[in-house]
Design a binder for these strands. Structure first.
Length: 199
DNA sequence: CACTAGATTTTCT
DNA sequence: GAAAATCTAGTGG
């Protein structure tokens, strides 16, 4: 059920695409499981990519990206938001997939408590929102997702077919020619995709 | 629904 | 000191 390390040790765009529809699980101290389906991802690939942290962050800050695939890289930005990334490829190839949105399927009560919002739609429909709902922070940096610990990713127990939309990444106006790379993927017509909530 | 401004703090282009 | 892989609340149509 849990995705093995060879799932992550591949081309980043392939992993970003195939992570759609997979299930992110966080186990609370109380044994409660928070679960959500990944519905939106973005790829950040190597030191060439001007939007990728590996290009300009110090290695001490983004060290998980330089390690092997299947680990998390959690980054804190805008003074108040955490971003959850999944490291891909082999050790030495700094690349990762940013999880931008989830469709919550279990543990909704706790997510509402964490987020203090009224609508299910606002729970996890953005990279900063989902980390708040799941209670993900720097503590979860460099966590092994292939082991059944507090955080892992598995196949969806009830997979269904969906169409994938490929588009450009968001929030990286400084990335010059990399702004227009089609490295963002999301599930078509899914209500939880950020900035595209069709009624 | 579209657009704008303000929040808030880690990190160093 | 400036910028940052964002969000929310506010205004106006």
């Amino acid at each position: 059920m849990i995705l093995p390390s060879n799932f992550y040790a591949r081309d980043t765009l392939t992993v970003a695409l195939e992570l759609l529809g997979k299930k992110l699980v966080k186990r609370e101290p109380s044994s409660l499981l928070l679960e959500g389906i990944i519905v939106e991802t973005e790829a950040y690939i190597g030191v060439e990519d001007k939007a990728c942290h590996a290009r300009w962050r110090k290695k001490e800050t983004c060290f998980p990206m330089w390690g092997p695939g299947g680990f998390t890289y959690v980054y804190f930005t805008y003074g108040m938001y955490h971003m959850l990334n999944i490291v891909t490829e082999k050790a030495g190839c700094p690349s990762a997939v940013l999880i931008r949105a989830l469709e919550p399927i279990n543990g909704l009560d706790l997510m509402f408590k964490n987020r203090k919002v009224e609508k299910v739609h606002d729970l996890t429909s953005g990279p900063g929102k989902l980390t708040m709902a799941f209670g993900v922070s720097k503590v979860h940096n460099n966590v092994d997702l292939t082991k059944k610990g507090t955080l892992y990713i598995s196949e969806h127990s009830k997979p269904h077919k969906f169409d994938v939309v490929t588009t450009t990444r968001i929030g990286i106006p400084y990335a010059e020619e990399y702004i227009n790379k089609p490295w963002r993927f999301y599930i078509k017509n899914n209500k939880f995709v950020s900035r595209s909530g069709l009624s």
